[in-house]
């Protein structure tokens, strides 16, 4: 189970609303490489992960991703709070506003709603960890792109924090992949699924 802690992992305190920034940052809420997909990916993959160090890591990173989802939600909420209709129309936020007003909804910047098709839970420790390492790099690239598109220091600080977490998670997943490799049967030269080896 989880217990809610009533605080953000890193502070979000944005003084000036900016709908244009919200329009791109929303991709890290419900986009293809966003925090919702990250948490669901790791928290789903852990059940079939055979090594306790690695299933523990998936649980802990998946949990941290939920805190990151909350930070992105806070950024979106603060960036859109108090917007008036002319600001909404001028920024192009009107296409979101018509469906969600100022509600926070998991979608990509392009408007595609969150879909579990963004992620995989393959039941193969090597396949899953390779996906996880790629996912962390894709999220890091997305944060790099966001940093090219925003200029408010209040927004940049939490985005930089989240970007750094992707780098640390990538490192930890790389170590987890090493743990899985160390546990492979020495005759499994081609890293076939150690969780379901029969018939390979």
């Amino acid at each position: 189970m989880w217990e809610y802690e009533k605080r953000l992992q890193f502070p979000v305190k944005i003084k000036n609303p900016d709908a244009r920034a919200a329009k791109v940052i929303i991709s890290q809420y419900g986009g293809p490489d966003g925090e919702l997909g990250a948490s669901l990916r790791y928290l789903s993959q852990r059940f079939s992960m055979p090594y306790q160090q690695v299933s523990g890591l998936l649980t802990d990173i998946g949990t941290e991703e939920l805190a990151h989802l909350e930070m992105i939600g806070a950024i979106l909420y603060q960036l859109t709070k108090g917007l008036d209709i002319p600001e909404i129309k001028d920024s192009g936020f009107d296409t979101y506003f018509v469906d969600h007003t100022l509600g926070v909804y998991p979608q990509a910047a392009s408007g595609t709603p969150y879909t579990a098709a963004f992620m995989q839970s393959k039941g193969d420790p090597i396949t899953d960890l390779m996906e996880d390492m790629a996912a962390e790099q894709k999220a890091r690239t997305t944060y790099d792109n966001i940093l090219k598109l925003v200029d408010d220091p209040d927004v940049i600080a939490p985005i930089k924090f989240l970007r750094q977490r992707e780098i640390v998670h990538f490192q930890r997943f790389g170590e987890a992949l090493g743990i899985v490799r160390d546990n492979l049967d020495s005759k499994n030269y081609y890293f076939i699924n150690p969780s379901f080896p029969d018939g390979c």
Binding site: L8, V12, E70, A74, Q78
Partner: peptide, 10 residues
């Protein structure tokens, strides 16, 4: 206390 996503909580 204010919810964590409010500016005054940060």
């Amino acid at each position: 206390a204010p919810m964590p996503w409010e500016t005054e909580a940060n």
